[in-house]
Protein backbone atom coordinates (compact mmCIF):
# COMPACT_ATOMS: atom_id res chain seq x y z
CA UNK A 1 0.00 0.00 0.00
CA UNK A 2 1.27 3.44 -0.94
CA UNK A 3 0.17 6.28 1.32
CA UNK A 4 0.61 10.01 0.61
CA UNK A 5 3.74 9.32 -1.41
CA UNK A 6 5.54 12.35 -2.83
CA UNK A 7 8.53 11.69 -5.08
CA UNK A 8 11.13 14.33 -5.86
CA UNK A 9 14.64 14.87 -7.16
CA UNK A 10 16.00 17.55 -4.85
CA UNK A 11 13.50 20.41 -4.94
CA UNK A 12 11.85 19.20 -8.14
CA UNK A 13 8.67 17.24 -7.34
CA UNK A 14 7.92 14.41 -9.79
CA UNK A 15 4.55 13.22 -8.43
CA UNK A 16 2.81 14.24 -5.22
CA UNK A 17 0.34 12.64 -2.81
CA UNK A 18 0.04 9.19 -4.37
CA UNK A 19 -2.35 6.77 -2.69
CA UNK A 20 -3.10 3.29 -3.96
CA UNK A 21 -2.92 -0.34 -2.91
CA UNK A 22 -2.04 -3.52 -4.78
CA UNK A 23 -3.90 -6.73 -3.99
CA UNK A 24 -2.25 -10.14 -3.78
CA UNK A 25 -1.94 -12.08 -7.06
CA UNK A 26 -3.14 -9.23 -9.23
CA UNK A 27 -1.37 -7.65 -12.17
CA UNK A 28 -1.11 -3.99 -11.30
CA UNK A 29 -0.20 -1.51 -14.02
CA UNK A 30 1.56 1.79 -13.41
CA UNK A 31 0.82 3.76 -16.57
CA UNK A 32 1.41 7.26 -17.78
CA UNK A 33 3.08 9.22 -20.52
CA UNK A 34 6.81 9.68 -20.90
CA UNK A 35 8.22 11.72 -18.02
CA UNK A 36 5.17 11.19 -15.81
CA UNK A 37 7.21 9.47 -13.08
CA UNK A 38 6.38 5.81 -13.72
CA UNK A 39 9.94 4.54 -13.49
CA UNK A 40 10.63 6.83 -10.53
CA UNK A 41 7.66 5.29 -8.74
CA UNK A 42 9.07 1.85 -9.49
CA UNK A 43 12.45 2.86 -8.03
CA UNK A 44 10.63 3.94 -4.86
CA UNK A 45 8.65 0.70 -4.66
CA UNK A 46 11.75 -1.50 -4.96
CA UNK A 47 13.74 0.44 -2.42
CA UNK A 48 16.21 2.17 -4.74
CA UNK A 49 15.02 5.67 -3.93
CA UNK A 50 13.74 7.20 -0.72
CA UNK A 51 10.45 9.12 -0.86
CA UNK A 52 10.41 12.86 -0.22
CA UNK A 53 7.27 12.22 1.85
CA UNK A 54 4.84 9.41 2.50
CA UNK A 55 5.08 5.71 3.17
CA UNK A 56 5.19 2.43 1.25
CA UNK A 57 3.81 -0.52 3.20
CA UNK A 58 4.24 -4.18 2.26
CA UNK A 59 2.10 -6.96 3.69
CA UNK A 60 3.86 -8.80 6.49
CA UNK A 61 6.25 -5.94 7.26
CA UNK A 62 6.13 -4.27 10.64
CA UNK A 63 6.48 -0.73 9.24
CA UNK A 64 6.93 1.29 6.06
CA UNK A 65 9.73 0.36 3.65
CA UNK A 66 11.88 3.34 4.61
CA UNK A 67 10.89 3.39 8.29
CA UNK A 68 12.24 -0.08 9.03
CA UNK A 69 15.84 -0.92 9.97
CA UNK A 70 18.21 -1.70 7.07
CA UNK A 71 18.54 -5.46 7.75
CA UNK A 72 14.74 -5.83 7.82
CA UNK A 73 14.43 -3.81 4.61
CA UNK A 74 17.06 -6.03 2.94
CA UNK A 75 15.10 -9.12 4.02
CA UNK A 76 11.95 -7.59 2.58
CA UNK A 77 13.65 -6.69 -0.70
CA UNK A 78 14.59 -10.35 -1.14
CA UNK A 79 10.88 -11.04 -1.65
CA UNK A 80 10.99 -8.92 -4.82
CA UNK A 81 12.06 -9.79 -8.32
CA UNK A 82 12.74 -6.98 -10.77
CA UNK A 83 12.90 -7.05 -14.56
CA UNK A 84 14.64 -3.87 -15.69
CA UNK A 85 13.85 -2.06 -18.90
CA UNK A 86 17.04 -3.13 -20.67
CA UNK A 87 17.24 -6.50 -18.90
CA UNK A 88 20.25 -5.30 -16.84
CA UNK A 89 21.91 -8.69 -17.16
CA UNK A 90 25.45 -8.73 -15.81
CA UNK A 91 27.41 -8.64 -19.00
CA UNK A 92 30.47 -10.48 -17.71
CA UNK A 93 28.40 -13.56 -16.78
CA UNK A 94 26.61 -16.17 -18.86
CA UNK A 95 22.82 -16.40 -18.68
CA UNK A 96 23.17 -19.43 -16.41
CA UNK A 97 25.48 -17.52 -14.06
CA UNK A 98 23.16 -14.50 -14.10
CA UNK A 99 20.25 -16.60 -12.89
CA UNK A 100 22.36 -18.66 -10.50
CA UNK A 101 24.08 -15.76 -8.75
CA UNK A 102 21.18 -14.68 -6.51
CA UNK A 103 20.66 -18.31 -5.49
CA UNK A 104 24.38 -18.72 -4.73
CA UNK A 105 24.41 -15.51 -2.72
CA UNK A 106 21.68 -16.77 -0.44
CA UNK A 107 22.95 -20.35 -0.59
CA UNK A 108 19.48 -21.72 -1.18
CA UNK A 109 20.89 -25.03 -2.40
CA UNK A 110 24.08 -26.83 -3.37
CA UNK A 111 26.02 -26.00 -6.53
CA UNK A 112 24.47 -28.77 -8.63
CA UNK A 113 20.94 -28.01 -7.55
CA UNK A 114 21.47 -24.31 -8.25
CA UNK A 115 22.72 -25.12 -11.72
CA UNK A 116 19.62 -27.27 -12.33
CA UNK A 117 17.38 -24.53 -10.90
CA UNK A 118 18.97 -21.92 -13.18
CA UNK A 119 18.32 -24.19 -16.19
CA UNK A 120 14.73 -24.65 -15.03
CA UNK A 121 14.14 -20.89 -14.70
CA UNK A 122 15.63 -20.30 -18.14
CA UNK A 123 13.45 -23.10 -19.47
CA UNK A 124 10.35 -21.44 -17.98
CA UNK A 125 10.99 -18.36 -20.10
CA UNK A 126 11.79 -20.38 -23.22
CA UNK A 127 15.56 -20.17 -22.99
CA UNK A 128 16.44 -23.79 -22.27
CA UNK A 129 19.90 -24.55 -23.59
CA UNK A 130 21.07 -20.93 -23.46
CA UNK A 131 22.85 -21.32 -20.11
CA UNK A 132 26.32 -20.73 -21.59
CA UNK A 133 25.43 -17.75 -23.77
CA UNK A 134 26.54 -14.25 -22.79
CA UNK A 135 24.04 -11.35 -22.81
CA UNK A 136 25.80 -9.83 -25.82
CA UNK A 137 25.08 -12.98 -27.86
CA UNK A 138 21.27 -12.95 -27.59
CA UNK A 139 18.46 -10.79 -28.99
CA UNK A 140 16.52 -8.05 -27.18
CA UNK A 141 13.51 -10.27 -26.54
CA UNK A 142 15.72 -13.04 -25.19
CA UNK A 143 17.49 -10.53 -22.94
CA UNK A 144 14.13 -9.53 -21.46
CA UNK A 145 13.21 -13.17 -20.90
CA UNK A 146 16.58 -13.93 -19.34
CA UNK A 147 16.11 -10.90 -17.07
CA UNK A 148 12.74 -12.35 -16.11
CA UNK A 149 14.34 -15.72 -15.33
CA UNK A 150 16.80 -13.93 -13.04
CA UNK A 151 13.98 -11.94 -11.44
CA UNK A 152 12.29 -15.27 -10.60
CA UNK A 153 15.46 -16.80 -9.18
CA UNK A 154 14.57 -16.34 -5.52
CA UNK A 155 10.89 -17.31 -5.92
CA UNK A 156 9.71 -13.74 -5.26
CA UNK A 157 6.30 -12.86 -3.86
CA UNK A 158 6.17 -9.72 -5.99
CA UNK A 159 7.55 -9.28 -9.51
CA UNK A 160 8.19 -5.78 -10.85
CA UNK A 161 8.48 -5.19 -14.59
CA UNK A 162 9.85 -1.92 -15.95
CA UNK A 163 8.59 -1.35 -19.49
CA UNK A 164 8.71 -5.04 -20.43
CA UNK A 165 7.56 -4.41 -24.02
CA UNK A 166 9.97 -1.54 -24.73
CA UNK A 167 12.01 -2.20 -27.85
CA UNK A 168 10.23 -5.45 -28.72
CA UNK A 169 8.28 -6.25 -31.88
CA UNK A 170 4.50 -6.76 -31.44
CA UNK A 171 4.65 -10.55 -31.58
CA UNK A 172 7.49 -10.85 -29.05
CA UNK A 173 5.70 -8.28 -26.91
CA UNK A 174 2.49 -10.34 -27.03
CA UNK A 175 4.41 -13.48 -26.06
CA UNK A 176 5.90 -11.65 -23.10
CA UNK A 177 2.39 -10.59 -22.03
CA UNK A 178 1.25 -14.23 -22.23
CA UNK A 179 4.28 -15.23 -20.19
CA UNK A 180 3.43 -12.65 -17.52
CA UNK A 181 -0.13 -14.01 -17.29
CA UNK A 182 1.20 -17.59 -17.12
CA UNK A 183 3.59 -16.66 -14.33
CA UNK A 184 0.87 -14.97 -12.31
CA UNK A 185 -1.42 -17.98 -12.70
CA UNK A 186 1.23 -20.65 -12.12
CA UNK A 187 3.46 -19.00 -9.50
CA UNK A 188 0.73 -17.03 -7.77
CA UNK A 189 2.96 -13.97 -7.64
CA UNK A 190 1.75 -10.38 -7.46
CA UNK A 191 2.97 -8.52 -10.52
CA UNK A 192 3.53 -4.77 -10.86
CA UNK A 193 4.14 -3.56 -14.41
CA UNK A 194 5.30 -0.12 -15.48
CA UNK A 195 4.26 0.49 -19.06
CA UNK A 196 2.57 2.79 -21.52
CA UNK A 197 1.89 0.09 -24.13
CA UNK A 198 -1.90 0.12 -24.45
CA UNK A 199 -2.10 -3.38 -25.92
CA UNK A 200 -0.27 -4.82 -22.88
CA UNK A 201 -2.23 -2.67 -20.44
CA UNK A 202 -5.58 -4.00 -21.67
CA UNK A 203 -4.31 -7.55 -22.16
CA UNK A 204 -2.89 -8.18 -18.70
CA UNK A 205 -3.92 -5.40 -16.30
CA UNK A 206 -6.27 -6.20 -13.41
CA UNK A 207 -5.83 -2.85 -11.74
CA UNK A 208 -3.89 0.32 -12.50
CA UNK A 209 -2.94 3.87 -11.70
CA UNK A 210 -2.45 6.58 -14.31
CA UNK A 211 0.17 9.23 -13.60
CA UNK A 212 0.10 12.63 -15.24
CA UNK A 213 3.32 14.54 -15.78
CA UNK A 214 1.62 17.93 -16.17
CA UNK A 215 -0.37 17.91 -12.93
CA UNK A 216 2.33 15.78 -11.19
CA UNK A 217 -0.40 13.59 -9.74
CA UNK A 218 -2.31 10.36 -10.13
CA UNK A 219 -5.35 11.16 -12.27
CA UNK A 220 -7.07 7.76 -12.36
CA UNK A 221 -7.03 4.33 -10.80
CA UNK A 222 -8.89 1.09 -11.42
CA UNK A 223 -9.22 -1.65 -14.00
CA UNK A 224 -7.89 -0.27 -17.32
CA UNK A 225 -10.82 -1.59 -19.39
CA UNK A 226 -13.29 -0.09 -16.93
CA UNK A 227 -11.40 3.21 -16.97
CA UNK A 228 -11.70 3.27 -20.75
CA UNK A 229 -15.42 2.54 -20.59
CA UNK A 230 -16.39 4.76 -17.70
CA UNK A 231 -13.88 7.57 -17.20
CA UNK A 232 -15.08 11.07 -18.05
CA UNK A 233 -11.66 12.68 -17.61
CA UNK A 234 -10.44 13.75 -21.08
CA UNK A 235 -6.82 13.19 -20.03
CA UNK A 236 -7.56 9.57 -19.12
CA UNK A 237 -9.47 9.00 -22.34
CA UNK A 238 -6.74 10.67 -24.38
CA UNK A 239 -4.13 8.34 -22.86
CA UNK A 240 -6.20 5.18 -23.25
CA UNK A 241 -7.18 5.98 -26.84
CA UNK A 242 -3.78 7.16 -28.09
CA UNK A 243 -4.73 10.81 -28.10
CA UNK A 244 -8.26 10.34 -29.44
CA UNK A 245 -11.48 10.62 -27.47
CA UNK A 246 -13.43 7.72 -28.93
CA UNK A 247 -13.90 4.62 -26.78
CA UNK A 248 -14.39 2.42 -29.83
Amino acid sequence: MVKDLTMAYGDSVVVRDLNFSVKEREIFIIMGGSGSGKSTLLRHLIGLQEPARGTIFYQGASSGLWEMATPERERLLRRFGVLYQGGALWSSMTLGENVALPMQEYAIAGAEEISALASLKLGLVGLAGFEDYYPAEISGGMTKRAGLARAMALEPDILFFDEPSAGLDPITSRRLDDLILDLRDSLGATIVVVTHELASIFAIGDNSVLLDGQSKAMIASGNPKRLLAESKDPRVLAFLTRGGTSRA
Binding site: G47, A88, L154
Partner: peptide
Protein backbone atom coordinates in the same frame (compact mmCIF):
# COMPACT_ATOMS: atom_id res chain seq x y z
CA UNK B 1 29.94 3.32 -14.96
CA UNK B 2 28.64 1.21 -17.86
CA UNK B 3 27.12 -1.21 -15.37
CA UNK B 4 25.46 1.74 -13.63
CA UNK B 5 24.14 3.05 -16.96
CA UNK B 6 22.74 -0.40 -17.84
CA UNK B 7 21.06 -0.72 -14.41
CA UNK B 8 23.27 -3.76 -13.62
CA UNK B 9 24.21 -2.18 -10.28
CA UNK B 10 20.52 -1.53 -9.50
CA UNK B 11 19.90 -5.21 -10.25
CA UNK B 12 22.54 -6.16 -7.64
CA UNK B 13 21.00 -3.82 -5.06
CA UNK B 14 17.48 -5.15 -5.55
CA UNK B 15 18.74 -8.69 -5.07
CA UNK B 16 20.21 -7.58 -1.76
CA UNK B 17 23.80 -7.94 -3.00
Amino acid sequence: ATMEANQEIDALRTLGI
